[in-house]
Every structure is written in C-alpha cells, then in structure tokens.
C-alpha cells in the first residue's frame, strides 16, 4: 500500500501573459519501506514535485491532482494545521541548494535543535530541556557524519563548507524521525567519500528503521544500486515508472533507455544491437513545450501519432506513456 500516492498532479504557472503547465499529469507513489528514485534531466520539474508535496509552492500557482494523499488522507484538502502536522512529524524534506534553505542569521546548531519535535524533550525546567535538545542535536550530527560537533554547532551557514551545510540539512530532516524522507539531490557537489557516506546512511536507515525515501537525483549511478523502484520524469511528465530491476533490464520508454545509456556503466548490461545513441538536443523550456508527447522532437521512434499525448499504460506494476514502446516483443 502506497504511503505517498500522487495521481495526475498538474501544476499551472501563470506567467502574466500565458499559463504554462510546469507539471503535466505526474503520477508518483512511494510505498512503505521502499526507496523510490525520481530521475530526470535538470529542469524536468523534480524540485517542483518536491515543493508541491511539501506544500510550499507560491499560493498563486494552481495545483490540481486526481489524488495526492498521505496514508490515505488527501494532502490538498486537509486543514492547514493537519498539513503542518504531517510535515512536522511524518515527512521530512532535504531541499536542493542547502545553503539557501538555511537561515543565514542563525547558528547551524540552533536550527538543528529547532527541528527536534517537542515530544522528544523531557524535563521540567528549561535548562534541562535545552540540555536535552543539545544532546539530541549532537548525536544526530554524529550520525550524519559531522564529527567535530564543537566546531560547527555555533557556526553560521556561510562560515562552513557546502558539505557540512548539506549534512546539517540531512540531520535536520532525520532528527524528527520521519516516516518518509524526501531528498532533493542530496549529494550534489559532494566529494565522493562524503557521497558514499550519505548514501550508506540512507540505505541503513531504510533497512533498520524502515524509513521510506524519495530520492531525487539526476545521478543514475548513485541511486541505481540503492533504489527499489524508479520514476522517470521528462519535461514535467512522468514517462515511465516501475521496479528498478525491470526498468534497468527492459526500459519501455525511449527516454528511459536514453537516460540509462548515458550512464556508461549500464551499457554493458544491454544487448549491443539495441543500443540507442543518447538523445540529441536538450530539454525544451516551459514556454516552448511541444504538443502531444513532449519528447517528440528528440525521440528517434517518433511517428505521426506522437502529436497526441500518449495514455498511461500498465503492465503489472510497470507503467509507461509511449505510443511505440521498446522491447514489447519480449513481454
């Protein structure tokens, strides 16, 4: 049963002279205990989905969805305080650009302590409580791999390296012991060793605490090994979604295949004859979206039918949106 269940999420941005669909019927679900990868080129709308789930999009943007629920409760129609409660305890978000997501005028330690839910704190007097907050903060810092807690707890975000800020961001997300962690490109710009460390931490938390993770990235290599399932996004549309295993072995959508091919280490897994050159061109801007299948102009398999938007088709738990999918003969 899906904890987070999104069906046909559409986001319309009014730019003054026209309304553009930044997200077009995106479907995404995260099951309890799984790591779901959300991949797509940069600019495909991954961060917009994260913001939509977190409920922090500007109020003038129009969000519609057939379903957008957390454990069966509709996120779009619930009251503000209910929604806040979900974000406070159940869902934690690591935003991309960690430096921007930190209050520049507050020490890192104070911001981490602020994220500790009040229920975790016992003690009658305020000094006992603040002592306990400090203790929890320090142990969380150690957990995410910040060893010199004394050096960083009083530092301001701009005084420390990007790696440390990113780790604080992750610590702030984990300290409330969420059920779902949404991590938007959490390893961008990290050194390889730090990156491995963070990925290992996520895998461990997923296995020991049954933490569900929505892992957003454009770095296929990093997530392919740890994710159970994957949703592929192109230009604000979900093009394919299913178990990681199946998608890797037999991608049905030309875009998924091109994406996998662009990561060198996957090529060896594929039969050499069917290998498709990586797509030319680049992702269209929101103002100039092609009609029908948005991949059309870049797609080597495109035919006339592609000017109408392909419907979502389903084979077991594998969904795709393409008129002329690959590998069909083998199914």
């Amino acid at each position: 049963m899906a904890m987070l269940d999104i069906k046909n999420l559409t986001l319309e941005i009014n730019t003054g002279d026209s309304v553009i669909k930044a997200l077009d019927k995106v479907s995404l679900s995260v099951n309890s205990g799984e790591i779901r990868a959300l991949v797509g080129e940069s600019g495909s709308g991954k961060s917009l989905i994260v913001s939509a789930i977190s409920g922090v999009l500007p109020p003038q943007w129009r969000i519609t969805a057939d379903r957008m629920s957390w454990n069966g409760d509709n996120l779009l129609s619930m009251s503000v305080s209910q929604r806040r409660e979900v974000m406070r305890r159940d869902i934690a978000v690591v935003f991309q650009n960690p430096l921007g997501a930190m209050d520049p005028s507050a020490p890192l330690g104070a911001q981490l302590e602020e994220s500790i839910p009040n229920e975790f704190i016992r003690g009658t007097w305020f000094w006992q409580r603040s002592q306990q907050r400090r203790k929890i903060a320090i142990s969380t810092m150690h957990k995410v791999g910040i060893k010199q807690h004394k050096r960083y707890i009083h530092a301001f975000p701009h005084q420390v390296s990007a790696d440390i800020v990113q780790k604080f961001m992750i610590a702030m997300a984990l300290v409330s012991q969420p059920k779902l962690l949404i991590a938007d490109d959490p390893t961008r710009g990290m050194e390889p060793t730090t990156k491995t460390q963070v990925l290992k931490l996520f895998t461990r938390l997923n296995q020991t605490r049954a933490l569900s993770i929505l892992f957003v990235s454009h770095d296929l290599l990093a997530i392919a090994s740890m994710s159970h399932s994957m949703t592929v996004l192109y230009a604000g549309q979900t093009v394919e979604s299913g178990r990681m295993k199946h998608l890797r072995k037999r991608p049905l959508h030309p875009y998924t295949k091109a994406l996998l091919d662009s990561a060198p280490s996957f090529r060896t897994n594929l039969p050499p004859k069917s290998s498709l050159p990586t797509l030319d061109g680049s992702i269209p801007t929101l103002q100039h979206m092609p009609i029908g299948c948005r991949l059309g102009p870049r797609c080597p398999r495109a035919q006339r039918a592609c000017v109408s938007t392909p419907a979502v088709r389903r084979i077991h738990d594998h969904t795709y949106s393409c008129h002329f999918p690959l590998h069909m003969e083998k199914l």
Binding site: V56, R84, V86, R88, A101, M102, D103, P104, A106
Partner: peptide, 23 residues
C-alpha cells in the same frame, strides 16, 4: 527558500515569524 524550508519542517506561522522572519 529558507522560509519555505521552515514551513516544510512544520513550523507554525508565528514560530517562523519570530525565529526566522523578524531577525
């Protein structure tokens, strides 16, 4: 973005105002 991040952490409006907006 840090105000959006604070909201995503489930802080209430008064909390966000006092702790992050005012200063």
């Amino acid at each position: 973005p840090y105000i959006a991040a604070a909201r995503a952490r489930g802080l209430s409006r008064p909390q966000i105002f006092v702790r992050h907006v005012m200063r």
